[in-house]
Computed example of a mutant assay.
Amino acid sequence: MFYRLSGVHHTRYETARRLWPVPADRWQVWILLALAVAAPLYMSDLYLSSYMLPWLVWSAAALSLTLLMGVAGQLHFGFAAVMAIGAYSSIHIVRAGWPFEIALIGAGLTAAFIGCLFGAAALRVKGLYLVMATLAMQYLVDWVIINVPAISGGAQATLQTPDVTFLFVPMQSDAALYYGALLWAVIVTLLVLNIKRTSFGRALVAVRDKDYAASIIGVNSFKYKLLAFFTSSFLGGVSGAVLAFCYYQAVTPEQFGFNVSIQLVAMVLVGGLGSVIGAYLGAGFVLLAPIFLTNMVAYAAIQGWLTVSSNLLAHIPLMAYGALIIGFLLFEPLGLAKIYDNIRKYFLVWPFRHSRS
């Protein structure tokens, strides 16, 4: 069986500290990466731009929030506002004549600065009180965007993204936009994976588990909470800019409302708190499950299996979607990542008897 730990000997620190010590894990990563890179060759433009591209961008955004909620343990219910800051900042920076690469960095720094201002509340409060502070950020940013025409152009205005080039490649074709989103998703994935293995990541985990105990052993809770908000907001701001330029290509205030923040939290919770692969699974579930359920309900209605009113028919997918989320929280609170980990561990020891324990 290919999924075995035999032959994996931790005789050097380099092998022990690998991201994927098991060879089968490395094969899976390389196969998935190869499939992602070759996606424009075997996938239609519709599926590439309507499913794969948004899934990659929202997975990167979910990873940014995972760093804050899952690793650092700081609740955030206004992350869509962070992405909105990055989206609008990047558009205005490009319109000012700066290259797209600088606009991405500027969007991240702007989002990080504003995110830290509201994240400073985490230094004094936690739990539901911190949720209220981040909710205040969400509604305040929404109000500013809508009521300051210099930012959005007005409440009903649509801000078009200018044509840009990234690393001398024009970002106009579907393939170029897809590869831009893929590159950002890979960068965020590697960054979060490596942060969890550094002293910074271990300090965040200590603050998450018990900030008072972390302070006793020398971990500066003030410093690391602010760094967590800064890093997460920076990544979220860049994700918002990538979402605006690679997917939406036009930004409106409704695209970053409170419901988007709830969807991001759902991605993190359903995927699995603190899990990198869980961010991808959670984003895929939140984005694709409603579409799949809508198609199933529509097909059942066409076949005559469901004889309900059109109003109820439109709400059945949302009801089923909510029931699925509740089911995950009840029967597998650790999310989709835990289900994947259970399957993986089963194959690590299969077919021996203790694989059932």
Results as ranks from 00 to 15, higher is better:
Thr11Met: 07
Glu14Pro: 05
Arg17Cys: 09
Arg17Val: 11
Arg18Asn: 07
Val22Lys: 10
Asp25Gly: 05
Leu35Lys: 01
Leu41Ser: 10
Trp55Asp: 01
Ser59Asp: 02
Ala61Asp: 03
Leu63Gln: 09
Ser64Thr: 09
Leu68Gly: 01
Gly70Val: 06
Gly70Asn: 05
Gly73Phe: 10
Gln74Arg: 05
Leu75Asn: 10
Phe77Pro: 07
Met83Gly: 15
Ile85Trp: 05
Ala87Glu: 02
Tyr88His: 05
Ser90His: 04
Ser90Ala: 15
Ser90Trp: 02
Ile91Tyr: 07
Ile93Lys: 02
Ile102Asp: 11
Ile102Ala: 15
Ala103Pro: 04
Ala103Trp: 11
Gly106Val: 10
Gly106Leu: 12
Gly108His: 06
Gly108Ser: 04
Phe113Cys: 09
Ile114Arg: 08
Ile114Phe: 14
Ile114His: 03
Gly119Asp: 02
Ala122Glu: 06
Leu128Asn: 12
Leu128Gly: 13
Leu135His: 03
Met137Gln: 14
Met137Trp: 12
Met137Ile: 07
Gln138Ile: 08
Tyr139Trp: 14
Leu140Pro: 02
Asp142Glu: 15
Val148Tyr: 10
Pro149Glu: 13
Ser152Tyr: 04
Gly154His: 00
Gly154Phe: 00
Gly154Tyr: 00
Gln160Ala: 13
Thr161Lys: 01
Pro162Lys: 00
Asp163Glu: 13
Val164Gln: 00
Phe166Thr: 00
Leu167Arg: 01
Pro170Asp: 03
Met171Gln: 11
Met171Tyr: 05
Ala176Asn: 10
Tyr178Val: 00
Ala181Pro: 00
Leu183Asp: 00
Trp184His: 00
Trp184Cys: 05
Ile187Asp: 04
Leu190Lys: 09
Val192Ala: 01
Lys196Thr: 11
Phe200His: 11
Gly201Arg: 00
Arg202Trp: 12
Leu204Ile: 06
Arg208Thr: 05
Asp209Lys: 09
Lys223Arg: 15
Leu226Glu: 02
Ser232Phe: 08
Ser232Gln: 08
Ser233Ala: 15
Phe234Lys: 06
Phe234Met: 08
Leu235Phe: 09
Val238Ile: 15
Ala241Arg: 06
Leu243Arg: 04
Ala244Arg: 01
Ala250Glu: 05
Thr252Lys: 14
Glu254Thr: 12
Gln255Gly: 10
Ser261Gly: 01
Leu264Ala: 10
Ala266Glu: 11
Met267Asp: 00
Ala279Ile: 00
Leu281Ala: 13
Leu281Gln: 01
Ala283Lys: 06
Phe285Gln: 06
Val286Gln: 08
Leu288Gly: 09
Asn295Leu: 13
Val297Asp: 04
Gly304Lys: 10
Val308Pro: 08
Asn311Asp: 14
Met319His: 03
Ala320Leu: 15
Ala323Val: 11
Ile325Gln: 10
Ile326Val: 15
Leu330Thr: 11
Ala337Lys: 06
Asn342His: 09
Lys345Glu: 12
Tyr346Gly: 02
Pro351Asn: 10
Pro351Gln: 07
Arg353Val: 13
His354Ile: 09
